[in-house]
């Protein structure tokens, strides 16, 4: 098993390294990521959203729907934690740790 996971990991490492050969250089101002979508955020975000913090502008306006999801994830984390810790803990005493 250990050998298997080792082999798999090394294979994956090779793949990832191979894949990164096709990526733009770090810091490249002409990379697709820098040229395609993001210029608009930098150029127009303040005009369009009134927020000089571009990350906030993207987070809370351009991609506000993602952030709704993100907030929901936090809510889920809270809800799940309570469900796991509190309601299940109650059963420990009540049913003597029934596993079903």
């Amino acid at each position: 098993m250990r050998i298997l996971s080792m082999v798999f990991s090394i294979m994956l490492l090779g793949l990832l390294m191979f894949g990164s050969l096709g990526l733009p250089l770090i810091g490249d101002k002409d990379s697709p990521a820098a040229e395609h979508v993001s210029p608009r955020y930098i150029e127009k975000a303040y005009k369009e959203t009134g927020s000089p913090n571009l990350v906030t502008a993207v987070l809370a306006d351009y991609r506000s729907y993602d952030t709704l999801g993100e907030t929901t994830v936090i809510f889920i984390a809270g809800a799940a934690t309570i469900l796991i810790l509190r309601t299940a803990a109650g059963r420990k005493n009540a049913e003597g740790g029934s596993d079903e």
């Binding site: 930098i42 975000a45 993602d66 952030t67 994830v73």
Partner: peptide, 17 residues
């Protein structure tokens, strides 16, 4: 580029949760 930052804020929160 602000976009990856915004995305990763979300990803961090997800990872935290």
């Amino acid at each position: 580029n602000p976009l990856p930052h915004a995305l990763m804020l979300t990803a961090i929160v997800v990872s935290l949760s």
